[in-house]
Amino acid sequence: MLNEAASSVSFFGIFVTAAFYLAAVKLQAKTKLTILNPIIVSSAAIIILLLVTDIPFEVYAYGKPLEDGRYDGTGASLFQILLTPTTVCLAIPLYEKLSYLKKYPLAILGGITSGAVTAVGSVLTIKLIFGLNYEQYVTLLPKSVTTAIGMSVSESLGGIVPVTVLLIALTGLVGSVIASFTMKLFKIKHPVAVGLACGTAAHAIGTSRAREFGEIEEAMSGLSIAVCGIMTVVLASVMAMIPI
């Protein structure tokens, strides 16, 4: 019954996505648990909703089915159209933090480059160990970058986009959980270094964690998101072209 109702109206997917995401944000604000990442929680809840009610994924993603077999476009995938202009807008927070880059140019560029190379190198190692094919390999390549950039990289290289998005979210979660431990273990104390490590390894989720360390840590982490993203795009494109 719910299945029929959802399939005969427009805007079902858009509303469900907005409402579930909003609820998940409130849940995290209330519980203050990093592990309850709103993107993961709302997606999981929507998956359960679709499975229980038998509402087809197409109706959720693309809207009301039309007579000619197409959909009316009022589904959740409408939000993805905004992804390119939004990624362009990542230039704004980067520009606002550029004064830091001028202060520590060598440490910032050197640190982030070493991190981006480690990320791509570790994925290459995983590829070799498990004998992954090209599609699987490029799915994992953009693991450390912010989701908007990682998604486009995976898509343009021919990866499995949903898996890339999941991996990036998990990477952010793990990064924010292990941050304190890792900094202590390797005696990383300088606020600039702590921020760079958080942002390069765990993008936006790492940056929320860096905010708890301090203001400089947060700014450096925010700066790393875009810089590491751009570096990884170049690195991943080169790596994907090398036949290994």
């Binding site: 991190g115 480690t118 693991k143 990383i188 390894a201």
Partner: peptide
């Protein structure tokens, strides 16, 4: 990739930049 690799990236970035 989400655990070991993230730990390595964080450690290397932090140590090198410091």
């Amino acid at each position: 990739a989400s655990t070991v690799s993230t730990f390595l990236v964080m450690a290397v970035t932090g140590v090198v930049s410091q």
